[in-house]
C-alpha cells in the first residue's frame, strides 16, 4: 500500500501526468467551492446571531478571519513546496509554489481590506496599527517580494529556484516577525481589532468560519491547479508531449 502510494506520488509529480489529472479535478473543486461559499455566506448573514455589542458589522469577520488564516497557511504550503522542489528537484513542486503565491497575496489583501472595514465602525478609523493587521501587511510585502523576484528573472528555472529560496528564508523569518510585531504592539498599547470578542464565541460562529475557510480552500485549489496547468504549458512547451497535445487538439490552448 505504502509503495503503491509512493508510485502514485511519483507518477503525478511529473508535469506530463499532472496536467490531465489537474484538468479532471478542477471542475470538482470549483463545484465544492461554490457550494461551500453559498452555505457559508448564508450562515454568515442569516444564521449567525447579531452581536449584542457590535451589531451587524461584525459579520465581516466571517470573511476576514478565514482570509487571514488562508493567507498564512498558503505561505506555509508555498514554502513547503519550495523546500520539496529544491531538495528533490521536482519541477512540479516548484510550479505549485509559484502558482500559490498570487492567491496567497489575494487573501492577504482581502484580510487587510476587510480588516479596514471592520475597524471603521469598531474603532472609527480604517487603519489602526494592530498586531494582526500589521503582520498581515508585512505578509503582503513578503508575497509581493516573492512575486517580483520571480517576474524579474527571465530564465524560468532560475526564477523558480531563486524564489523558492526566498520563500524558505521568508518562512523562517515569519514567526520572528510575527512575534516581534506582537511584542511591539503590546509595548505601545496599540488598539486591537482582534475579532475574538466574546469569551465564549458562539459555536455557530466557529462553524461558519470553518465553512468559509473550506470554501476558500476549495477555491484556492481550483485556481492553483488552473494556474499550475498554465505554468506547465509555458515551461514545458519545448517537450514532445506538450507539442503533441497542442498539435493534436487545437482547443488545448484555449482549454488551459
Amino acid at each position: 500500500m505504502v509503495s503503491e502510494n509512493a508510485i502514485a506520488w511519483y507518477h503525478f509529480s511529473s508535469p506530463k501526468n499532472f496536467y490531465p489529472l489537474a484538468g479532471r479535478l478542477i471542475p470538482w473543486f470549483w463545484g465544492l467551492a461554490v457550494i461551500l461559499l453559498v452555505v457559508g455566506l448564508y450562515m454568515s448573514f442569516f444564521v449567525a446571531p447579531t452581536d449584542y455589542k457590535q451589531g451587524e458589522s461584525y459579520r465581516i469577520i466571517f470573511v476576514h478571519v478565514p482570509a487571514a488564516w488562508m493567507s498564512m497557511f498558503i505561505y506555509l504550503v508555498m514554502a513547503a513546496y519550495a523546500i520539496i522542489g529544491l531538495t528533490w528537484k521536482l519541477r512540479m513542486a516548484e510550479m505549485m509554489a509559484s502558482a500559490l503565491a498570487p492567491t496567497g497575496a489575494m487573501f492577504t489583501f482581502l484580510a487587510l481590506w476587510t480588516g479596514a472595514f471592520w475597524g471603521k465602525p469598531t474603532w472609527g478609523a480604517y487603519w489602526v496599527w494592530d498586531a494582526r493587521l500589521t503582520s498581515e501587511l508585512i505578509l503582503l510585502f513578503l508575497y509581493i517580494g516573492y512575486m517580483s523576484l520571480q517576474s524579474a528573472i527571465d530564465d524560468p528555472r532560475r526564477a523558480a529556484r531563486a524564489s523558492a529560496l526566498l520563500a524558505i528564508v521568508g518562512v523562517i523569518n515569519l514567526p520572528v516577525i510575527y512575534w516581534s510585531v506582537k511584542w511591539w504592539n503590546t509595548l505601545h498599547q496599540g488598539a486591537s481589532v482582534s475579532p475574538t470578542m466574546a469569551p465564549k464565541m458562539a459555536s455557530i460562529m466557529i462553524t461558519t468560519m470553518l465553512v468559509m475557510t473550506f470554501a476558500f480552500w476549495m477555491y484556492t485549489i481550483a485556481v492553483v491547479l488552473m494556474r499550475a496547468r498554465r505554468v506547465i504549458l509555458e515551461r514545458e512547451r519545448q517537450t514532445s508531449w506538450v507539442m503533441e497535445m497542442v498539435n493534436a487538439d487545437p482547443q488545448a490552448e484555449m482549454k488551459k
Binding site: D154, D155, P156, R157, R237, Q238
Partner: peptide, 8 residues
C-alpha cells in the same frame, strides 16, 4: 542534458 531558457 542542458536546457537554457527555451533552448535544449
Amino acid at each position: 542534458e542542458c536546457v537554457r531558457g527555451d533552448h535544449r
